[in-house]
Amino acid sequence: MSWLQKLLPPKIKRTLGDTKKTVPEGLWSKCPTCESVLYRTDLEKNQEVCPKCGFHNRIGARARLDQVLDAEGRMEIGSEVTPLDPLKFKDSKSYAERIKASQKDTGETDALVVMQGSINTVPAVVAAFEFRFQGGSMGSVVGERFVRGVNACIDHKLPFICFAASGGARMQEGLFSLLQMAKTSAALTALSRAKLPFISVLTDPTMGGVSASFAMLGDVILAEPGALIGFAGPRVIEQTVRETLPDGFQRAEFLLEHGAVDLIVDRREMRDKLVKLISSLMRLPENG
């Protein structure tokens, strides 16, 4: 069990895990909330959103980028940067082994994928977290790729969009990870000076050091329906305050109600919404 899974209450835990791997293509899939039995292919066609109840299943970084970016003219940023083990960290398993296992499982070299491309012909740089890679945790590579994405925006006068899905800072890189919070947040000051928009999209889950840094610094902050978003994990809070948490606590709707996010956006409308927001913020000609 990953450290993040431990933080989450049992109800959420059930929706974790790699359904794609355990359920072969073309078989039935059961929605974790409405329990409707769905064809996998139908679910995939619907961007992993349950057609019956609208539940947003978690998706990987590449699938996310495929949904948002046009197929043509993509260029990956920061893939030349790969993880090290600066502390020679070892618990029951060494960090080096954990990294290798995640790389094998996900096909990614770390938890953030950044791409320059276009969204419905509007040029942009889009970053997406791979939650299956060490719980989407932020270490040195995630921070550096984020910064390189921001720098590409400054160089080419592009907007920056980031889809967060992360348990927080990566413990195994110690203070290096904590300082990525400062590094990514500082990079956004440069983006701001260049008057380029940063749109932060919070997806399930966005917690800890990622939530408490760049993710909450969007010029516009969007959230996917039902996403768990917060600083401290619900279990930690429950143990601290010794109270039962209110219904819907730390869900996207809760954040909207408390003024922490601008909009909740259905994944199937995300692309259009992004184009609309970017076009207005950057004073682009009206689109379509």
Partner: peptide
């Protein structure tokens, strides 16, 4: 890590400090 702290935006408060201190 408390309920009220989350309601009032603990994440944003920390993030904003990181941003402002950088500049």
């Amino acid at each position: 890590p408390g309920i009220g702290a989350e309601e009032r935006g603990q994440s944003e408060a920390i993030a904003r400090n990181l941003y402002v201190m950088a500049e």
